[in-house]
């Protein structure tokens, strides 16, 4: 059991390490991978999301609760709330700026 836990942690660490370095390389030299800056942003965001999922599973043991998965349920609903907060704010504020601040 504990041996298994240890190997989970090591896997999570190595995977996160690789993903971080990969994201870093793309940020520094997007041209190296023949990427436009916008495409590079999409890719590093996906890498971040991937690392987020990996760390949640391998470090935080998400989804390994015994019994009903309450923690997972709260985690996912919070992610929805965060998406609402961030993306709706951007959507609303972009429209406000577009309509109300034509100078900038």
């Amino acid at each position: 059991m504990y041996q298994k836990t240890l190997s989970l942690r090591i896997f999570g660490f190595i995977a996160s390490f690789i993903l971080t370095v990969a994201a870093f390389l793309i940020i520094i030299h997007p041209g190296l991978f023949h990427l436009e800056n916008r495409a590079a942003i999409v890719i590093i965001l996906s890498l971040a999301l991937l690392q987020f999922i990996i760390q949640s599973i391998f470090f935080l043991d998400l989804g390994r609760e015994t019994g009903p998965q309450w923690i997972l349920a709260f985690f996912i609903s919070t992610l929805f709330i965060i998406l609402i907060i961030v993306f709706f704010s951007i959507w609303i504020m972009d429209h406000l700026n577009y309509n109300m601040m034509p100078m900038s």
Binding site: A23, I27, P30, A40, I44, L45, L47, A48, F52, Q55
Partner: peptide, 13 residues
């Protein structure tokens, strides 16, 4: 992870 990506990453790009 997200500060690294959103603040520094997109900020740099």
């Amino acid at each position: 992870i997200f500060i690294f990506t959103v603040v520094y990453g997109t900020g740099h790009l």
